[in-house]
Structure formats: C-alpha cells, structure tokens
Design a binder for these strands. Structure first.
Length: 222
DNA sequence: ACCCAGGGTCATA
DNA sequence: TATGACCATGGG
C-alpha cells in the first residue's frame, strides 16, 4: 500500500496518453443515455445503439417515453441487456422530465442531484457519477472496477474500500477539480484498453515497476 | 469454446 | 454484509 500517490498516478497517465477530453457525445442527454447503455458493456456496442437512436431522432426523453418498449428494445439491441436497459431508459426519462429537464436539474446541488439519480431504477453509484461528472460537470469521481484493480495493484489506495470511501479519496487527491476528475477516469479506461493489447510496449512499466495493469487479463510481462 | 466489457437489481444466507 | 444469479450482445 506504499506505492505512489493517487495524484502521481494521474500525472503519469496524463503524460503517457495525453488528454482524453471525455465524454464522447454531442449533448448532455446523450451522455446520460450512454451511461446507462454502457453498464457492463463494451463501448463499441453502445456506439451502435446510440447511432441507431440518433438516426431515428430518438435521443430525447420525450421520444424515449413515446416509443413502445418493444421497438426501443429493438433499437438498442446491439448494446446487450436490451430488455433491462429499455426499462432503465424509460424510467430515467420519466424522472428526467418529471424533474423539469436539464435546466432545472442544473440548479440542484450535487448531493441532491446524486440522490435523485440514485432513486431512478437502474441507476447505481457508477452510472449516477458518470452523469454527474460528464453531463452536469460536477466535481465527482467515478469509481469502476478498473480503478479498483489499478489502485490495488499499484498500491495507491485500498481497492476493496467502499465506493464512497474511494470516491472521496480521489476527489480530495485531485482537489475536487472537475477537469482533472474528467481526465483521470477517462485515462484509467484508456490505460486498461491499451494495456490489454500492447504487451511489448507496456506503458505500465512507467506507472508501476511491477508492470501491473488495470485490465482484468492475467498475463505477465518479461 | 471461453473470457471480457466504461453495472445494477434481486433473492438468499 | 456479502455472495450468486441474472440480464445479452459482440470482439478477441
């Protein structure tokens, strides 16, 4: 547990990969839809689903509520769990409109907003924080499994700590800077993807002398 | 054929 | 509190 600090890890990743400038989306609502669709799902599959929704101009809360569940499920089929996610998109859209939409929601405090998001069926801590950070630009850090593994392997934090414990730890390490938290989370995912494929050019050597990775594949270097 | 992916809910012990 | 089953597509 006596590795480098969380902030040093962030600086290393930023130096290696450069700015990621997330979230890849045109609108805040698209970020929210993407956050739900990407639950335990490869982003490449989510892109297909979102592309279909865009083409048919369904990327709004009103449209998602208007369309039948059967049709919506068919649109988002490529993103997997389509029956589950159809319900989640609809319950989220209902809440979103009932709350008055983006402008009204933007006036709420971060804590109230998180509470509201978590009250939606199908929105858990990670999805809520994705939305808070990338759609509402709130100073919130998103904890995912990559983060837990990377922190554990590098030793900059206890990967088994509770979600909020880890989240607050990172938020303090980055002085609650929105831009830094946006980048850090994006960089961790970028690093996980890269370290899964590029064994000969393992960037992790710069990050950890033990060549540890964020991804879940258990291979060894050297 | 197997493992994983930018999780969350629900039932069970 | 803490596991386990379940949801389902697509790429390696």
């Amino acid at each position: 547990m006596t590795g480098k600090t969380i902030f040093e890890l962030y600086q290393n990743l930023l130096q290696i990969y450069g700015e990621q400038s997330w979230w890849p989306a045109d609108t805040a609502f698209e970020v929210m839809v993407g956050a739900i669709l990407t639950q335990n799902t490869a982003w490449s599959n989510v892109e297909k689903a979102i592309s279909r929704l865009k083409t048919s101009k369904l990327l709004s809360a009103e449209s998602l509520l208007r369309i039948s569940t059967d049709k919506l499920a068919e649109f988002i089929r490529p993103s997997g769990y389509f029956n589950v996610k159809t319900k989640r998109l609809k319950s989220f859209s209902y809440w979103y409109l009932q709350q008055g939409g983006f402008e009204i929601l933007s006036t709420h405090s971060t804590e109230n907003l998180r509470e509201g998001l978590l009250s939606v069926h199908g929105v858990g801590p990670e999805t809520a924080d994705d939305i808070l950070l990338y759609a509402f630009h709130r100073p919130v850090f998103v904890i995912d499994n990559y983060t837990r593994r990377l922190f554990s392997r590098i030793g900059c934090a206890n990967g088994q700590a509770s979600y909020d414990d880890l989240r607050i730890q990172v938020e303090q390490s980055l002085s609650s800077d929105v831009k830094d938290m946006n980048e850090f989370h994006a960089l961790i995912i970028r690093h996980a993807k890269d370290s899964c494929k590029a064994i000969p050019t393992c960037h992790s050597c710069v990050i950890s002398q033990h060549c540890q990775h964020a991804c879940n594949h258990s291979f060894t270097i050297e």
